[in-house]
Amino acid sequence: MIWDIILRAAVVGILLSILLSIMSYFVVVRKMTFAGVGIAHSAFGGIALNFFFGFAGYIFPLFFSIAASLLIAFLYKRGNMSEDSAIDVIFVFSMAFGVFILSLSNGYSANMLGILFGNILSVTNFDMITTLAVFSVGFVFMTYLFSHFQLISYNEELAYIAGINIDLLYYLFWVVLSVVIVLSIKLIGIILVNAFLVLPTLVGSNCSKNYKGIVAVGAISSILSVVAGIFAAYFLNTPAGATIVLVFITIWLLSFLAKKL
């Protein structure tokens, strides 16, 4: 039983951290980390609707996150308005809507901490299978198109001339990212998911100067944080996301010190 819970959480956590580390590289290189905050928080509106209707699936959270991420991606693309404030408006709306709906539903407060900060007990077999499927598709998507995204991040005009469909790949990236973020919420929680979009690349950059090294070190440090964090969360009975992120921050601090010394 113990091992079932830990195993499920670890499988989900490891698969998602690998994928998020690769995506993190592009999110950081293009300075879009705040978009991750927006997407994760936007899922809250959908999660609240789940409670309200007594559902458990991913449909509502996915709907909210994908809609928010496409909107945010569109605003980044247009680039002539203050994206950060637009992202703020989008996720604040979703959070407010979520809290409003939740307060109309019964018995929500017990689960609140888990939604916000993660809970290993909430990870089911269904979540594990869904994560495996999403990981397979997402991993092939990101590794197959890695040079494409690299060129787009370097200079979009060169990407266009190379015959890359920039808009399609750009929006697909955000859709895949929303799906991955929504799947991470049960384990990590809404508030802390963004750590997995920022920390892998920060740790990676402290240890390596090259993109391959950054992604590899990022993935390894995320996996370590997830596994260590899950064990700690189980035995200390603390929220999984918070525990994992504390481990991750410690690793980041160590990598920072190692770089300075």
Partner: peptide, 27 residues
């Protein structure tokens, strides 16, 4: 000015960057 010079790539990667290949991360 419109090239992202902050990318963590080496000169050789920058020169090769337009030679896009599938599964480029393992390249």
């Amino acid at each position: 000015a419109i090239v992202n010079w902050n990318m963590p790539i080496r000169v050789v990667d920058a020169v090769m960057i337009e030679k896009v290949k599938p599964f480029g991360i393992f390249r």
